[in-house]
Simulated scan of single mutants.
Amino acid sequence: MNFVQPIRDPELIREIKRFLREKSHRNYMLFVTGINSGLRISDILQLRVSDTERAYFNLVEMKTDKKKRIEMTPNLRKELKEYVEGKEPHEFLFQSREGVNKAIGRSMAYKILRDAAAHVDLDDIGTHTLRKTFGYHFYKQYKNIAILQKIFNHSDPKVTLGYIGIDQDEMDKAMKGFRI
């Protein structure tokens, strides 16, 4: 498995959103849900329309089998409300075009993200990029590693900082400024 990075540049995020929205509302919403929730792709793909009826996601994480409650950002809530209009509560949010009420798979989610990344010339992108992008921008906005650590269920703040690429940013900045 390749090491993936968060998308640090807000302009690239806007361009990816524009690109995905033009291609498919489903693909756009997959991206928006990921970068606004911090959920793993395995949990996002299991979401159903009924999961958007509250102001938060209430789920059991597939990886850890732990219960999790994540408040939706106001913007995500608004966009999801529009997206699910006319859909039945039992339907998957991100349906495959194959079969009846089947969620897209992880490999399709990966393909969607790689296509968008290629459009903006980004490398080191995968499904985990969504979660890392959320974490990176959450940290940059609030500088509260303790809350982010809890959201991600990490054991140590150092793990969280490394996970979202803050350590790499600091090393890169130090090396660029180093003079001898």
Rank of each mutant, 00 (worst) to 15 (best):
S50C: 11
F134E: 11
G99R: 05
L47G: 10
A116R: 06
R97Y: 12
D51H: 12
V159Y: 02
M62R: 15
D43K: 05
K140G: 01
Y142A: 03
H154T: 07
G162E: 09
G99W: 09
A117W: 13
Y56D: 11
A118G: 15
H119D: 13
V49H: 11
Y110V: 04
N153W: 00
G34Y: 10
E88T: 06
D124W: 01
H25S: 13
K132V: 00
L30T: 05
Y83G: 03
F152Q: 06
Q149N: 05
S107Q: 14
T160M: 07
E88Y: 03
E91D: 10
L113F: 02
D167I: 05
N153P: 08
K63I: 07
T73R: 11
L59C: 06
K102E: 14
I125G: 05
G34N: 11
P157S: 01
G38Y: 04
I70V: 15
G99K: 04
N27S: 12
Y56F: 14
G86A: 09
F31S: 08
T64C: 06
K81R: 15
Q46H: 07
N144G: 02
E82M: 11
N58V: 00
F92R: 11
H119R: 14
F57T: 07
I112Q: 09
I44Q: 09
M62T: 03
R114I: 13
Q149A: 01
S42I: 08
K102Q: 14
A116H: 12
A118L: 15
T133E: 04
Q95E: 14
N101A: 10
E79H: 01
H137I: 02
R106N: 10
S50V: 08
E71K: 10
K78W: 10
L113C: 10
E91Q: 15
G162V: 01
I44C: 11
K66A: 14
Y163M: 03
V100C: 03
S50D: 13
S155L: 01
D121R: 14
A116K: 09
M29F: 05
R54G: 03
D65L: 14
S42N: 12
I104A: 07
T129A: 05
H25I: 01
Q46N: 13
M108F: 14
V60A: 06
D124R: 15
K111S: 15
H25Y: 12
I166A: 05
G86I: 03
G126W: 02
R131G: 04
P89W: 05
N75S: 14
V159A: 02
S107N: 15
T133Q: 01
G86R: 02
Q168K: 15
I151Q: 11
D167K: 06
D169A: 00
L45F: 00
D65C: 13
S107H: 13
L39V: 07
G86T: 05
R97K: 13
A116N: 09
G105L: 07
N153I: 06
R26S: 07
D115F: 01
E82Y: 06
E85S: 14
E91L: 02
S96Q: 07
L47S: 12
N27L: 07
K140Y: 00
R40H: 01
L76K: 02
I147L: 13
I35P: 02
G38W: 03
R69W: 04
